[in-house]
Amino acid sequence: KKIKIKIKVYNPETKEVLELEIEVSEEEAEELAKKLAEELEKKGYKIEEVEI
């Protein structure tokens, strides 16, 4: 079964909002969402919402 992940991120420095969407297997979904959120935060983005 495929799971659709939508991530909306906001960069306070540039006032930019990015929306990302990807489909992955159920097993990958939670781990991938967690890794993406961590990487984006390292780059200065503030995570507003992660929906699985």
Rank of each mutant, 00 (worst) to 15 (best):
A33T: 07
E13N: 11
K34H: 06
E23S: 11
E28I: 12
E31N: 09
I22Q: 09
N11R: 09
E28M: 12
E48R: 11
G44N: 02
P12H: 13
I5V: 04
E51T: 14
K46T: 08
V24W: 05
E28L: 08
L32K: 12
E49R: 13
V24I: 05
N11Q: 08
K1D: 04
K34I: 07
K43F: 07
E28F: 08
E41Y: 08
K43C: 13
E21R: 15
K1A: 06
V9L: 11
K1E: 06
Y45V: 01
K2L: 15
E27Y: 11
E30V: 12
K6C: 06
L32F: 10
I47V: 07
P12G: 15
Y45E: 01
E16L: 10
L32Q: 11
E49T: 14
T14I: 04
E28Y: 09
L36K: 02
I3C: 15
E51Q: 09
S25K: 07
E51N: 13
Y45K: 02
E49Y: 14
K15Q: 06
E51R: 10
L32D: 04
L32V: 13
T14P: 02
L36C: 05
E51V: 15
K42W: 07
I3L: 15
K2D: 03
E41C: 09
E38W: 15
I52V: 07
L18C: 12
I52Y: 10
I7E: 00
E21W: 13
S25N: 13
L20N: 02
K35Q: 07
E16N: 06
N11H: 09
A29Q: 04
E41H: 05
E26F: 07
K15F: 14
S25H: 11
S25P: 12
K2V: 08
E28P: 06
K34W: 15
K34N: 06
K15S: 07
E39F: 12
K15M: 04
L40R: 00
E27R: 08
S25C: 13
Y10Q: 05
A29P: 08
K4D: 02
E28C: 13
E21C: 13
E26N: 06
I5E: 00
K42T: 03
E16Y: 15
I3E: 02
L36G: 00
E13F: 15
K4M: 04
K35M: 09
E38N: 11
E39M: 11
V17D: 04
E26L: 05
L20K: 02
E26Q: 10
T14N: 11
K43N: 03
E31W: 15
V9P: 00
N11L: 03
K2T: 12
E19A: 10
E49H: 11
K4P: 01
E39Y: 11
E41R: 15
E39Q: 09
I7V: 05
I47Q: 00
K46I: 10
E23T: 07
E19I: 12
E38Q: 13
L20I: 14
I47G: 00
V24C: 14
E51L: 10
T14F: 04
K35T: 08
E23C: 14
A37C: 09
I3K: 11
L32G: 07
I22D: 04
L20T: 03
V50E: 01
V50Q: 02
K35I: 04
E13L: 13
E31G: 15
E30I: 07
G44W: 01
E13S: 14
V17H: 12
Y10P: 00
V17W: 06
E41I: 10
I3V: 10
I47T: 01
K1L: 15
Y45F: 09
E30M: 08
E16Q: 12
E49S: 14
G44H: 01
V9F: 13
K46V: 09
E27S: 14
V24G: 07
E41P: 01
E51A: 09
T14K: 07
E41W: 08
V17C: 10
I5W: 06
K15R: 09
E27F: 12
I3P: 03
P12E: 11
E28A: 08
T14S: 10
Y45T: 02
E48K: 10
E19W: 11
L20S: 02
E16P: 01
V50K: 01
K6G: 02
K15Y: 11
K4V: 04
Y10H: 04
E31F: 13
K8I: 08
K6V: 04
I52A: 02
K46H: 05
K4R: 09
Y45A: 02
E21K: 14
E23F: 14
K34S: 04
P12N: 13
E23K: 07
E49N: 13
I47E: 00
A29D: 02
I7M: 08
A29T: 04
T14L: 04
I22Y: 09
E23N: 12
K6A: 03
I7R: 00
A37Y: 05
E23W: 11
K46Q: 07
K42E: 03
V50D: 01
L36W: 11
E13G: 06
L18S: 05
A33L: 07
K15G: 12
Y45M: 04
V9Y: 14
L18A: 05
E28N: 12
E21D: 07
Y10R: 04
V24F: 04
L20H: 07
E13M: 14
E30W: 14
K35D: 04
P12R: 15
K43L: 05
L36P: 00
L18F: 14
E27M: 13
K8Y: 07
T14D: 06
K43I: 06
L32M: 05
K34D: 04
I52M: 09
I5C: 03
K6E: 02
I47M: 02
S25T: 05
E41Q: 12
E48F: 12
